[in-house]
Design a protein around this nucleic acid. Sequence first.
DNA 1: CCGGCGATCCTCT
DNA 2: GAGGATCGCCGGC
Length: 189
Amino acid sequence: MRLDEAFYERDTVTAARELLGCTLVRRTEAGVIRVRLTETEAYKGGEDPASHAFRGVTPRNGLMFGSCGMLYVYFIYGMHYCMNIVAHEPGGVGAVLLRGAELLEGEALVRANRPGVPDKALLNGPGKLAKGLGIGLEWNGRNLLSDRELWVERDPSGALLPSEASPRIGISKGQELLWRFTPKENTAP
DNA sequence: CCGGCGATCCTCT
DNA sequence: GAGGATCGCCGGC
C-alpha cells in the first residue's frame, strides 16, 4: 500500500520515525528494486539549525516549503546525491532524509549501479542509497504520491517498527535534537 | 573494528 | 571564500 499525502502531511519527526521499515520501490525498464528503510532523519524549518531550510527559502531548498510527498534531491560534497521526502504539518516546512536501507529485491540492478561493493556497504548511507537506486538530480521534484517509477509502501497492517532515536549524522549544529531513527536493537538476554 | 584524511564542487554569505 | 545532511581508502590496534 503506497504511502499517501496524509502520511507525509504530519510532523516531520513523526514521519521520519514511521518511514522506518517501509519499502522504497524503484521500478525500471530492466526490473524492480525494493529496499527496506533502516535509517532516516528529520529536518525541519526555522527552528532547526541543521536544516537547509533554517534561513528561509533559497533556490535549492524551495521544495521543503511545498507539497508533501515530493522528492527533494540535493548534491553534496562535490560528488554525492541525497534523497529526501518532503513531510511537514499543513503550512509547515520539512523533509525526511533517507539514510540507509537493506536490499529486498533487485540485487543485480543495484550492483550494476554500485559495482564491486561488499554486501554490508551496499546501501548503508544516503549517498550509497541514492547511487544504488540510480537517483540523481534529475529526480528532484518527483511526486512520490503518483510517480510510476518511485514510491514508498507500507505493510497494510500498519504495524510500526520499534525505533531508536539518536543525534543526526554529519551536522555541526542541532546535535542535541534526537531526530535520527534506526530500528531498535535486539537487546541480548 | 575504528579514526583520519583527501576528493571535489555546489550553495549561500 | 568557507563549509557542507559523504564516501572509500588507508593505517593502526
